[in-house]
């Protein structure tokens, strides 16, 4: 009995509703489910709670005004430390409910959620202003003789989750081939069944799952996934090692455009106003332009 879970990005996003809590896998500007995020940008869904080790996913959703509550430990583009749209949103006060955690606290929130526990204790956060800016966080005392007071990180349950992996079969047995799974398994496990969406570079037959990596890379099984989206270059412009690295030139272009309203409007018009196919075509055309411009400049400099 095979269950084919293949769907499109737009079909996945069509199951989301305003006000939901969405977890997005990856880390910073690494292996982000960008084609699903781009589909979300095309949809009317808004008023979201977004949970992420944030990168351009968070930036784009903030720029589009879709985020009511943001639960994060950082938002960064890695090679460019600060995410321009996230900065603008925080400085402009347009994220109504920011929730800032230590990176490890965020892992604990997802892990507690995935284990259906009310909280997990940690020392991370004690003494820092994370407790000041999150007044709803409570402390818990060890019931043992030490009586130590710890932060009780509340478990987080998600209504929807997006992750991007390297390979998957049509049922959602998925594989990471790069250096780090990040916390993608926790995002899926913390999510209620129904809207756990996994995009991948390529859908392969189950019998081919071990062709490119050892069994250790099969960290996502089909009980964790409701929909599989085949999305070649779906993590662009973030890394998806070993299939491709970060598109640094395009990331710089994104950051440059984000700093200026007119340039950003032109960026959205050119790259984010059509389908995923249109996006990939527009990026390819942009690279051809850059190469031609560089060639002309070299020619000009040598003539």
């Amino acid at each position: 009995m095979t269950i084919d879970k293949r769907i499109s990005e737009d079909e996945a996003v069509a199951t989301l509703a305003d006000g939901m809590t969405l977890g997005i896998g990856g880390w910073g500007s690494r292996r982000k489910p960008m084609s699903l995020v781009r589909a979300l940008l095309r949809s009317p869904v808004t008023d979201l709670t977004v949970v992420s080790y944030g990168g351009p996913d968070v930036g784009l959703l903030c720029a589009a005004g879709k985020v009511r509550r943001l639960i994060y430990g950082f938002v960064s583009l890695d090679s460019i430390p600060l995410e321009p749209h996230f900065r603008a949103a925080r400085q402009g006060g347009t994220i109504p409910e920011p929730v800032e955690y230590d990176e490890g606290m965020l892992q604990w929130a997802l892990y507690a959620g995935s284990l259906r526990l009310p909280f997990l204790p940690t020392r991370a956060g004690l003494g820092s202003d994370v407790l000041e800016v999150n007044p709803s966080l409570r402390l818990v005392s060890s019931p043992y003789d030490d009586r130590e007071e710890l932060v009780a990180v509340p478990g987080l349950r998600l209504d929807a989750a997006f992750v991007h992996l390297n390979r998957s079969d049509a049922r959602g047995n998925a594989q990471f081939l790069g250096p780090d799974l990040y916390f993608d398994d926790l995002f899926l496990n913390a999510c209620e069944p129904g809207r756990r969406f996994l995009s991948c570079e390529r859908i392969v037959p189950t019998e081919s799952l071990l062709d490119e990596g050892s069994f250790h890379t099969l960290r996502i099984n089909r009980s964790m996934v409701d929909g599989v989206v085949e999305a070649p270059r779906g993590a662009h412009f973030t890394t998806c090692e070993p299939d491709y690295g970060r598109d640094e030139a395009f990331q710089r272009h994104y950051v440059g455009a984000a700093g200026d309203p007119d340039a950003w409007a032109a960026f959205v018009d050119r790259f984010l106003s059509g389908s995923e196919h249109d996006y990939q075509q527009a990026v390819a055309a942009w690279h051809v332009e850059q190469t031609e411009r560089a060639a002309r400049e070299t020619e000009g400099a040598t003539s």
């Binding site: 938002v75 400085q91 606290m105 020392r123 994370v130």
Partner: peptide, 25 residues
């Protein structure tokens, strides 16, 4: 994390990242 008040920073930086956990562990 940020320069200016957290509620409405003058300059948003990285966020606290791993700083709280690092320094107590």
């Amino acid at each position: 994390a940020n320069i200016g008040p957290w509620d409405r920073p003058k300059a948003q930086l990285l966020g606290v990242r791993g700083g709280p956990g690092n320094t107590v562990n």
